[in-house]
Amino acid sequence: MSAPLETTALGKRYRRTWALRDCTLTISEPAIVGIAGPNGAGKSTLLGLAVGLLEPTEGTVRVAGRDPRHDPAALAEIGYVAQEAPLYRSFTVGEMLAFARASNNRWDDALATELLAGASSQTRVAALSPGQRAQLALALALGKRPALLLLDEPFALLDPLASRAFLGALMDGVSETGSTVVVATRLVADIERVCERVVLLGTGRVRLEGTVEELLASHRLLTGARRPLGRIRGVEQIVRERYSGRQATLLVRVNGPIVDPTWSVDEIGLEDLLLAYMAPEELQPPQPPEPSRLRWHG
């Protein structure tokens, strides 16, 4: 059984800008993986490439070992909910299900109906709330019993209550189909709620990857007096430094215990961790303003 999603040096260029570059990922066992990153980081591009809507500029993408762009059989393995969950607005819920039934050889009507949580099949899509619409889109994607489920910003339009309902449906559905789920979102809180693994994209490249557990275990916040930074034992890399007055706060990746007693060591939350990696420009300490040169014209 090949990996649900595998990319090798995958890149996509629009005219002159790279939306995604040199992306090598293997998502091997059934898992819920979050793709995090700010707007324009390449999350949607990665999903678009994985579902075959986009053609890679370089590199390869394989879904269950198949090329999603050129192997028609790959499409059956992918459930995809695009941003804003596009649906045919004039269709009723029942007609949307009939559409999916007619468009897929493998289709689990019972599962899709169950995930709809009792929305009337006579209701028009246009009359559904954003939450119901998202759940309908999810039901259509999971009804294919896909090996890989791709969700692009599924929570963006949902209020907290609808989000929770969506999440419930997602968990129920995935436990039924055993799909690997890839959720692209710019909201880190979403990832914290659902994901076991995280891939952080920034300006088209993979910045960070790992299971949530690993990432949290390998990062620490160090606080101590401001001083010239040399090597600190147990620190593999300083991710971010911040200063306030005479105090320094370092986010570091550790490879052993920090023994230096002049640093107080704290654990870091996932949200702070991801935000730190998303904003690499904070690595540079602020530059003092250049003195303005005045010239006397007498």
Binding site: P72, L75, Q83, P86, N104, L140, K144
Partner: peptide, 18 residues
């Protein structure tokens, strides 16, 4: 216009056959 090609073209029928 409605973005529904993302729905239609990601079912099991390849888009040219669709």
């Amino acid at each position: 216009e409605h973005g529904t090609f993302r729905l239609a073209w990601t079912q099991s029928i390849p888009r040219y056959r669709w």
